[in-house]
Write a protein that binds this DNA or RNA. Structure first.
Lengths: 257, 257
DNA sequence: CAGTGGTCTAGACCACCCT
DNA sequence: GGGTGGTCTAGACCACTGG
């Protein structure tokens, strides 16, 4: 097994939380890649020196958070996020009739800049730190519908290039996961109404001043730290933003673990 | 204890699912009212003739679904849908800093009309059926922020009056639950950007043409049928719409087991 | 203080999957 | 058959709550 768990247990922390943190750490280090199996529950229990029930509880929470997937009789696997999984999870734009459509993404611009105070706070990095900026136009069934600006902390995406982004297969989040070992498990979105700037109007083929849906999104990695800040501007003439909420899905400050 | 569990276990059903169904049944029958404690885990284990771990698993799921609430050292209680619970569950407007504020609601208008084809389809009723219309202005910290129009199928809200709505304590959803036995457990929201009409502008103290967030909401009862159609128009100058999404919260057709 | 839920153990037996 | 996860047991000790 060779588990080098150097981390100490936190004061007053339940054992299963410690096991969970340890597993997140090991996954983050790339010990097991997406779609690969992790050791069996019995082996993990031995490795961590706890009972199977305790390991099971840690695994339960990681499965609930979609970090792991269990297959009876086969094993427990690190979640692999294919195109559909990410799109259906986090792309909430659909037709007025509720129909979900695959967007065609075209890269408008790729550059880097220094984070101002607001961006730095949102990404949990120091002001003046280098961030990568990606700007896209999303077209749905031939209708230019959404422009966005994605900001990434350069330190977590070392080696990212315009070509890598432009020539990717699938979603940006798959790129984060496959190339940079950053899986998105949670997003936070704030929505406002605004009006189109000259450039947005040009891209979306409307007049300046046309009302747009402005979505500010922060995406979080498995360890709970922010890895992306994204501003999206949506023309809602033919498409709209859609979500179903269950009472159990509380709005803020939810603790799933 | 006196548990008259007549229900038989289903074939191939796990024990804890049977316990869970039994508890839901007993709660539905009014054995324990909202805000009342249910028997302790040990007593339930005895009553059902299973181990505590099995009871615990059933309770875990009911807590996750917000049917029960646990308080260490005190007991396990049937959830009461008070003002805070409904507000935090379904009112997603907050300050730009994320701060949640209690809205002050004032009734603009109350009347009834016949459903047109679109409304009828949204509410799952026949075209021409009578619907009640409630229009409100919501003010946050003195700032008029949201106007909405609520449409209810009159048949499910027999006896609803302007006075009953105006003089309610708490949210509309509490009114639905307490007066009309219609608990809201799920909502579906679609968001668009639009511009203020003359009347909306007057109510929200902006100029006509000001960009507004337009939220179309359908609310569903426990049995999954729609009971409310609501159009909200939000001035997002000082407040905004906010949601946190976990990957586990999939958009459509989710089954919470 | 006694009673509650929160955590944890060290197993058991089963259904399922792969070889 | 041998290994996996799925379920279940019959306890243990702890922290917290209320009287």
């Amino acid at each position: 097994m060779d588990m080098h768990i150097k981390e100490l247990r936190k004061f007053d922390e339940p054992l299963y939380k410690w096991v969970k943190r340890g597993l997140i750490e090991l996954i983050g280090l790339g010990t097991w890649r997406p779609a690969q199996a992790i050791p069996s529950e019995r082996k993990l229990a031995d490795g961590f020196g706890v009972s199977m029930g305790t390991v099971r509880r840690a695994l339960d929470e990681l499965v609930e958070e979609n970090v792991l997937v269990r297959h009876q009789g086969r094993g427990t696997f690190v979640t692999a996020h294919d195109r559909n999984r990410y799109l259906f999870s986090f792309f909430n734009v659909c037709g007025h009739d509720g129909q979900r459509i695959y967007p065609v993404v075209s890269l408008i611009d790729f550059d880097s800049l220094r984070a101002d105070a607001s961006v730095a706070r949102s990404l949990g990095i120091g002001a003046g730190t280098k961030v990568v900026r990606i700007r896209n136009l999303l077209t749905l069934k031939g209708v230019p519908t959404l422009v966005d600006e994605v900001l990434l902390p350069a330190s977590r995406f070392a080696g990212i290039t315009r070509e890598g982004v432009a020539e990717r297969n699938g979603t940006l989040y798959q790129l984060y996961e496959e190339q940079f070992m950053q899986s998105v498990t949670r997003i936070e979105e704030r929505l406002r109404a605004t009006v189109a700037s000259a450039e947005q109007a040009r891209n979306l083929e409307v007049d300046p001043g046309y009302p747009l849906l402005h979505i500010v999104r922060r995406a979080f990695a498995v360890d709970g730290t922010p890895i992306e800040l994204r501003h999206s501007f949506v023309k809602t003439e033919h498409y709209e933003y859609s979500r179903t909420l269950h009472e159990a899905d509380r709005g803020l400050g939810r603790d799933r673990g």
